[in-house]
Amino acid sequence: MIHKDNISQRQAWMAVLSKAACEELAMLWGAVSDKPSYELLRKPETGLVMVRGRMGGTGKPFNTGEATVTRCSVRSDSGKTGHAYILGRDHKHARLAAEVDAALQQDENREGLMTSIIMPLAEQHEAKLNLHRKKVAATKVDFFTLVRGEDE
């Protein structure tokens, strides 16, 4: 049985991998030495996920529309299974993310890979977000309600 903390840690790195730019991920993963070899359990495959919203943002769910998703599963030679499900149709991205997911499950590699891959990717994403937030913040507005003369 997998421990709950382990699941939330894995969810966190899978989220970072899904949002990463593929070229960045390829570069960082390419720079890692002594990688295990991988068997493809499921070659990268593109399909659809129906995206759901909620009535009024918080109410009952409804189906909004689909999104393309590419998935891939690999098994490392040490027996760890890595999965990836990534929005879009980028087979390379899904494959890389599945490999990194498998590698991160290997206890002795985790800390190193978190530092060399996951943290830099998360920081890049955060930096992009921060710039976006500043641009958006510059458009924040205060509307003044003017009292009309005849109303006193």
Binding site: G47, L48, V49, M50, R52, R54, P61, A67, V69
Partner: peptide
């Protein structure tokens, strides 16, 4: 032409990264 993998969890628009 594409296979359906399933349904997403409902998106949470309350925690949206807002542009407008």
């Amino acid at each position: 032409t594409l296979p359906r993998f399933g349904y997403s969890q409902p998106i949470d628009t309350g925690s949206m990264e807002i542009s407008r």
